[in-house]
Design a protein around this nucleic acid. Sequence first.
DNA 1: ACAGCCTATTGCGAATTGTCATTTCGACCG
DNA 2: CGGTCGAAATGACAATTCGCAATAGGCTGT
Lengths: 234, 234
Amino acid sequence: MKRVGATEAWTGTADCRLCAIRGSVLFAGLKEDDFERFHRPIDQSVYGAGATIYAMGDPATSLFTIRSGLVKLTQFLPDGTQRIVRLLRSTDLIGLEALIDSEYPHTATALQPTELCRLPVEFVRSLSHSNAQLFNELMARWHKALSNADRWITEFSTGSSRDRVVRLLLWLAEARGDERCELFSREDLGAVLGLTTETASRTMAELKRQGFISEPRVNQFLCDMPSLRRLLDA
Amino acid sequence: MKRVGATEAWTGTADCRLCAIRGSVLFAGLKEDDFERFHRPIDQSVYGAGATIYAMGDPATSLFTIRSGLVKLTQFLPDGTQRIVRLLRSTDLIGLEALIDSEYPHTATALQPTELCRLPVEFVRSLSHSNAQLFNELMARWHKALSNADRWITEFSTGSSRDRVVRLLLWLAEARGDERCELFSREDLGAVLGLTTETASRTMAELKRQGFISEPRVNQFLCDMPSLRRLLDA
DNA sequence: ACAGCCTATTGCGAATTGTCATTTCGACCG
DNA sequence: CGGTCGAAATGACAATTCGCAATAGGCTGT
């Protein structure tokens, strides 16, 4: 396991009123007045690829908004096998579970250099009681997480290895809005799809040979979206 | 597909104040006063085994509390494959998504004769804005649904067919609190675990032969819990 | 009791995936 | 530039799962 850049660094306190992605984050619905009530500042930090944001079992004290980057949430079974249950990106929220659980149920790891804003759980909890907008936004976040999880089950855990890989490629590319997708290691690919590293590797290599995807830069793939979609019907 | 008893019948209006499972349902936190504000009565109905409660794509108008029985939520892929993404029981809530989506994202089907209370979505929505208890309860429900979904991914969609079947048996028995579990068809078993009907059947038959489970009554299994747990370590 | 129907079980060959070892490739470092 | 390291790709073989077909078993209605 490569640990290059497995670091965390505090990069200052955020001014939410000036946030570049404010329209898309949890606090989107808050008004200027609400921000006045922030007594404690919101910490911002950067995590290098491979850095652990929190580990399963850690006391759940914060939620995090992803400003940029890519984060995986991993869950472990008693026998040691692990499975990536979510991939999260800019404007997504991680650690929602902290609102209910006292410990994080997953391990959160940065897959790319990632900027986060740290939101203390008590802060979000109290604010949600007094602010209907935030309440609705939270509900929407739960809903999104749940429908993603459902998708994980039906799309990434069902069918042949090729189908799973193709569905993931399409999902990644669609989420970006173009034909490209930043990919991660074959090991993580396997952990997302419930396949071994070797099967993940073979499947990717096969798709490359057949011309469905190309790799202009390392770990950046170009997808022939229409052809890939057609693969799923057959 | 057997459709015996695929029926729905209205069985009256509920008086939540006298509800036998009131301590465990969504409205657990409501006070006597709150119930006074119910203008419209809450409908109760019974669904026979195999009956559809709602279908994917239907306008999402209601949430349902399960008073008794067993319900599956199924999701479909464009190519026709389907996967059961949740199993729900007494005191569980189905159709939470109606609070956000305008259409149900799953098909809900009764696996056993099932009694439901129907809660109009507008009713829950407005009540949740004025009642902090209900709000918290809703949040807890989202959380529970999500952690169940995560479990579905790591436990029921990962590993060998035998491991998956064993994990499901243990889960069903633990949820009941004893060593028994009411099971359903092999087809549904496969759809929960992402396996074919045949593989599900073979695995169950094998576990029976090896003495890990017995079937005193049709579709009711007795599990040798300690031995089953040991199987998962090996 | 018998026919009809549906589900569960089982056999068997094919296809897929896992497992382990080896080779290739690319990045980084001295 | 050669050497080193880790990840990706690949080969070879084993194990698992699938897919299809046949059989067995249970329940229903006549």
